[in-house]
């Protein structure tokens, strides 16, 4: 007990000996802070724009300016390989092997003529008209294995591809579609839902009109008699016997189906409106419209 008492007395003694709180040992917190008025919104700082030079002053140079160097974009006097790049047509390739695989896996029905809409409706061929895809380029990969009798309309095909299709008794036509028609062919159902009249298909542009009028390319504007002559010529060149087609053939109607140069869809004429709900087709009777849509 006495030890505790003694301890507290000692503590009090020590406290008395400690220095008092006085002006000499407290901080002078009450003095007014010296106010420095900086220039600008944040007191003259740099607004996070760096320390020196053009960056700090935020005088952004024009695009491509290289602070006095001869700029890259002016260094070469002209770039001819880009000339007219925004008009150039692209043809999205599809090989005969891929086409045969689609036929084998029942994605394409060969008892109907095949066109771009058929290919797009499979969901396996992604046409992008916004990237100037002017249709399908049927390539000759798989010419040896291809063995289906089809009536196909493509936008680009070479000699070997044409031969591979005609060897099996099929028919190929190269047809041009303008970019507005390609949007319709890409998704016909979406177009019919809009309830708009089917537009006219435009004629080929200047750069491709010769391709589509030539019978060698089976162009849709070529003379049919010249095409049948060229079919024979190609069969002799590639060394196969051209299968003859008679009217008694069960595929005759399918193989002979062609589009009009102004027609986008098989069997549907420009100016018609398709009603998917009522399952009706509306055809204009107005003379002005008939005059406009006629081929």
């Amino acid at each position: 007990m006495s030890a505790i008492k003694n301890g507290s007395i000692e503590a009090l003694k020590m406290l008395r000996a400690l220095p008092r709180v006085s002006l000499a040992n407290i901080r002078n917190t009450g003095a007014p802070k010296k106010f420095v008025r900086g220039r600008g919104q944040h007191g003259g700082d740099k607004h996070g724009a760096g320390n020196k030079g053009s960056g700090q002053r935020q005088n952004y140079m024009r695009l491509g300016f290289e602070t006095g160097n001869n700029p890259f974009y002016l260094r070469f006097p002209y770039e001819p390989y880009y000339k007219g790049h925004h008009f150039r047509k692209q043809y999205l390739p599809l090989s005969l092997l891929q086409l045969q695989k689609m036929i084998d896996t029942n994605r394409i029905d060969i008892s109907e003529p095949i066109d771009l809409a058929t290919l797009c409706n499979t969901g396996l061929y992604k046409l992008r008209p916004e990237e100037k895809h002017y249709g399908v380029h049927l390539t000759d990969e798989g010419t040896d294995i291809f063995s289906s009798k089809i009536n196909i309309e493509v936008q680009w095909a070479n000699e070997a591809t044409i031969a591979a299709i005609e060897r099996n008794g099929g028919f190929i036509t190269t047809g041009f579609f303008d970019i507005h028609s390609l949007w319709l062919l890409k998704d016909p159902e979406a177009f019919f839902r809009r309830g708009q009249p089917i537009p006219r298909r435009m004629l080929p542009s200047e750069d491709v009109i010769l391709y589509y009028s030539s019978p060698e390319n089976r162009g849709y504007l070529a003379d049919p008699e010249k095409i049948s002559y060229e079919r024979l010529v190609l069969s002799q060149k590639f060394g196969y016997e051209l299968p003859s087609l008679s009217e008694s053939d069960s595929m005759y109607d399918v193989l002979m189906e062609r589009k009009d140069p102004r027609q986008i869809f098989y069997g549907l004429e420009p100016g018609w409106i398709v009603n998917l709900v009522e399952k009706e087709i509306y055809k204009p009777k107005d003379q002005e419209l008939i005059e406009y849509y006629k081929t």
């Binding site: 409706n121 159902e189 398709v274 399952k279 009706e280 509306y282």
Partner: peptide, 19 residues
């Protein structure tokens, strides 16, 4: 003025365009 066609032969061309 327009004609309304409900011909199944013509509708066949529409139905084969539907995916």
């Amino acid at each position: 003025d327009f004609d309304v066609s409900k011909d199944p032969k013509e509708w066949k061309y529409v139905s084969r365009l539907l995916p």
